[in-house]
Computed example of a mutant assay.
Amino acid sequence: MGPAERFALILGVTFAIPMSAAHAYLDAASASLALQALVGIGAAYIVTGKSYIRRIKALFKGNKKSDVETPGKDD
């Protein structure tokens, strides 16, 4: 399943689930947890993006796949 099909599936499921207004209390701890989750997701996207950019640069420079550093791999 490619990224486009996966996105379409997630979008379809999101709209298929009925949404209603939630009358809930949102305190500071809940907001802090949500903010930390968003920051963590953003950091993961940045690290993943940097990894893909390195691989693309190595492809154009003509480096072999084994020459590209893998994050978290110690030599």
Rank of each mutant, 00 (worst) to 15 (best):
G2H: 03
G2F: 06
P3I: 10
A4K: 07
E5D: 14
F7Y: 14
A8V: 14
L9E: 15
L9G: 09
I10Y: 07
I10T: 09
L11P: 01
L11Q: 15
G12E: 08
T14P: 01
T14I: 13
F15W: 11
F15V: 10
A16G: 03
A16K: 09
A16Q: 09
I17A: 00
P18Y: 11
M19K: 06
M19Y: 00
S20C: 09
A21W: 10
A22P: 01
A22L: 10
A22R: 12
H23K: 12
H23I: 13
A24S: 10
A24M: 14
Y25W: 12
Y25M: 08
Y25D: 06
L26H: 00
A28Y: 04
A28H: 07
A28Q: 12
A28E: 03
A28V: 06
A29F: 09
S30F: 05
A31S: 04
A31C: 01
S32R: 01
S32C: 08
L33R: 12
L33Q: 05
L33T: 06
A34S: 04
A34L: 13
Q36E: 10
A37L: 15
A37K: 15
A37W: 06
L38E: 06
G40D: 00
I41D: 02
I41V: 12
I41R: 09
A43F: 00
A44G: 01
Y45N: 05
I46P: 01
V47W: 02
V47P: 00
G49V: 14
K50G: 07
S51M: 09
S51D: 09
S51G: 08
I53G: 03
I53Y: 11
R54N: 08
R54P: 00
R55N: 04
L59E: 06
L59H: 03
L59N: 00
L59F: 10
N63S: 06
K64Q: 12
K64D: 05
K65N: 10
S66A: 04
S66Q: 04
D67E: 08
D67N: 03
E69I: 15
T70R: 05
T70M: 10
T70V: 13
T70N: 02
P71Q: 13
G72D: 12
G72I: 15
K73Q: 05
K73R: 14
